[in-house]
Design a protein around this nucleic acid. Sequence first.
DNA 1: CGTAGTCTTGAACCGCGTCAAGCTTGGTGG
DNA 2: CCACCAAGCTTGACGCGGTTCAAGACTACG
Lengths: 259, 259
Amino acid sequence: MRTPALTQIKPARMGDAAHEDMRCTDCPIRYRAVCAHCEGDELTQLEQIKFYRSFEPGQPIVWEGDRMDFVASVVTGVATLTQTLEDGRTQMVGLLLPSDFLGRPGREHVAYNATAATKVVLCCFRRKPFDDMIRGTPHLAHRLLEMTLDELDAAREWMLLLGRKTAREKIASFIAIIARREAALHKRRPGGRMELELPLTREAMADYLGLTIETVSRQVGALKRDGVIELSGKRGVILPDFARLVEESGDDSDGGWLA
Amino acid sequence: MRTPALTQIKPARMGDAAHEDMRCTDCPIRYRAVCAHCEGDELTQLEQIKFYRSFEPGQPIVWEGDRMDFVASVVTGVATLTQTLEDGRTQMVGLLLPSDFLGRPGREHVAYNATAATKVVLCCFRRKPFDDMIRGTPHLAHRLLEMTLDELDAAREWMLLLGRKTAREKIASFIAIIARREAALHKRRPGGRMELELPLTREAMADYLGLTIETVSRQVGALKRDGVIELSGKRGVILPDFARLVEESGDDSDGGWLA
DNA sequence: CGTAGTCTTGAACCGCGTCAAGCTTGGTGG
DNA sequence: CCACCAAGCTTGACGCGGTTCAAGACTACG
């Protein structure tokens, strides 16, 4: 198992200070991240233990077994969590989009490999003071509970995909998930014609879906041939009809996607 | 496997009052369930909104879409959470053992089918007052957060199994999981020779593992032929050597099971 | 141009699903 | 006490979906 070539990555350094001056009140994820319910004093406290870090695509963020000295919110970009078996088989177990939370409070060591899929900016909190705040700040703890419950729901949806869907359904489901999140980001409902950019390479998609990259490639091709999707470049996808895609995903005709 | 706690339970119906008199201080899951950190006044409050319900093997507990009027802790027995696709394909997404929590605070409707796999006794809390307590009782909220994070970790391990393990590894992993939990229940470390009772039918195992019952049956047979396990009856399993089973599961040689 | 990284395509293989019997066990009633 | 039956489990034959292995094509960047 070889580690991805890190050599070409330019020195985006830890503790990068490009954003140190950003105020929480201007933050693009202010009302969706773990800090969403915090105001006034609580927010000030958070602001005092926070710092920003950026990562280039492909760059590891933290590695399984590392000492965990911070937790973080994704401000912009997409990060992935992966697990591996000793022989190198890998499965993605988390896909972190803006406002998602990285790390487990109270845990000393990292449990999963976290990698930047695109350029990523994290809002990091020093772990010790953050842990203390969890205990003393109900708004923070409550928001984290909400977010963790949402993650758990997403993980369970994902388990259904991994255990019971066909390759074609998996691909359709993945594109639909990205489309929904894209729509949510612009505060619109998914539907009709949509255009979007896949935030993952074929390999990362394969790790997400429990497939090989060859199968991903073939099924993407099949969906294109069947007119369910159109491609523009390697990452760009156009959906002539979102509902058609959902049909292909094997999910309930429509229900359950209102929350 | 003996389960002393179950013997005293009367043939029960829903809303059964056989346990209404049980005090929290005598509860077998007192320090592991959601109530673990609660003392004194908090415990009294919980005690006022709780009631017991029992279920027979195979009996549905709640159904997807139902109105959720309670949340609950599993006191004894094993329950499952499952999701289904419209064409009937089923995937288990949760396996609830004693002290595990059922239901999502703040949610109006049930998201998954919950079914009793064995005889089950639940300690139920009326949802509205419980939701209020979550906001006003840090100990309760904090424990629930801990438990939810543990569930999320388990779900991610499960995703690795579903996405990347072979049928044989899945079966070995499942038996190892049951063996570990069994050991934990008796406060021992898993290892050496062990005996245990599978709490699921072949069909439920298939739903857990993303397989068909035929494949489950074949791979159980194969592990038996290869001397990894011995069978006693349909549900009974004897492990001559726990470490050998773990090797077959595809997981790391040993690491990661200390938490 | 040439090279590296990423993606696509093709052909052969095989693990697991599908379909169809048969077996084991426990319960029920004659 | 045994005939019968249903539920759960096992076993076998066969075929398909997805992996594996091996080229080839496209793009970005020297």
